[in-house]
Design a protein around this nucleic acid. Structure first.
Lengths: 175, 175
DNA sequence: ATGCAAAATGCGATAATGTTACATTTCTTG
DNA sequence: CAAGAAATGTAACATTATCGCATTTTGCAT
């Protein structure tokens, strides 16, 4: 079985991000990781939308709230969140977004299940797909050459269904 | 049918890169693209190995040959070569390598066939897999949410068969 | 509670990667 | 050959990310 997650236009994002923060809290506690204020604040900014945000965007948002940070502080928090599997990094755009599959799994995305991301080029929303079915298949191809895969990431750019339906006029979407 | 290409330890790399340059020449002529000296030289540097090289590495190599260039010159050539499908960009490491599938296809990698790259974390060699079989499969998953994919790239990190066989002692490989 | 060691954060500088704007040169085509 | 388009040169600058070391906070053993 596989599932595909692409944020819907009308989802309750306040609830969505609240759930995410609660999950992160419990997840860190469970693994003995320190979910500090800074890390919480950074995750909160990343999870504020389903778009990917850059490190300096996060810095700027903090700054506009009167919270002056050095880049390294943000990067350290981002690294922590990446390691904890709470966020992902979009390699093609040097930006970060919250993991949307926490609630589907016991542990965050970390096995040799490829990470699969859908990136809408119109509204910039990021979706995340279950890579469990793709994993063995990829492994099979790769194995032909004796290559032993450890981790992988698939970034797919295109247009989400909502943007298709609306004739590509959804750039206003805020989360 | 699908194929998987991972450069072998003992392949004739001189011939390999010669073939590539010859292909590039003909490919550009065929499409009416200008394969200038600079572009040729940049491709030649990129194709000098099966490792991915950074833009500033290329700059440095030129510099050590007495050829002083500005970053922008290298980036412009890289962009041309990317557009022509002669090289690929490894997003996870901001680096570039020569397309190894020119000879398998009429035209370079550009349809909605995912680009699939194998990256050996030991010797840094890059392999390239035919994504034709994976493409429809991915499309099928993605379509569940109505997402219309345009282009995608899968980067797989692991250990190549040679490095496995040699107990991970192949960092010396030069091409 | 107290003090110690480890972890996290602050702070300043700097490195690595990529781009803008505009001048000059080279190429193509009539 | 002339004119326009394409490519390259040049200098400055923007963006993304890291280093080294000082300071603060936290968890834990006593």
């Amino acid at each position: 079985m596989s599932s595909s997650l692409f944020p819907t236009f009308d989802h309750d994002h306040k609830l969505c991000s609240q759930n995410l923060m609660t999950y992160a809290e419990g997840h860190c506690k469970h693994l003995g990781l320190r979910f500090t204020h800074l890390r919480r604040d950074v995750l909160s900014e990343v999870a504020a939308s389903h778009k990917a945000v850059g490190a300096y965007q996060i810095l700027d948002r903090f700054a506009s709230q009167g919270k002056k940070l050095a880049p390294i502080s943000v990067y350290r928090s981002l690294d922590f969140l990446l390691d904890a599997g709470l966020i992902h990094r979009l390699e093609s755009t040097n930006s970060y977004f919250a993991c949307q599959r926490n609630f589907e799994k016991d542990s965050p995305c970390c096995s040799f299940e490829p990470l699969v991301f859908l990136i809408c080029e119109n509204c910039e929303t990021i979706g995340e797909i279950d890579g469990q079915t793709l994993g063995p298949l990829i492994e099979q191809f790769v194995d032909q050459s004796g290559f032993a895969p450890k981790r992988s990431q698939l970034e797919i750019k295109g247009v989400c269904s909502l943007c298709q339906a609306s004739g590509h006029q959804e750039l206003e979407k805020t989360c």
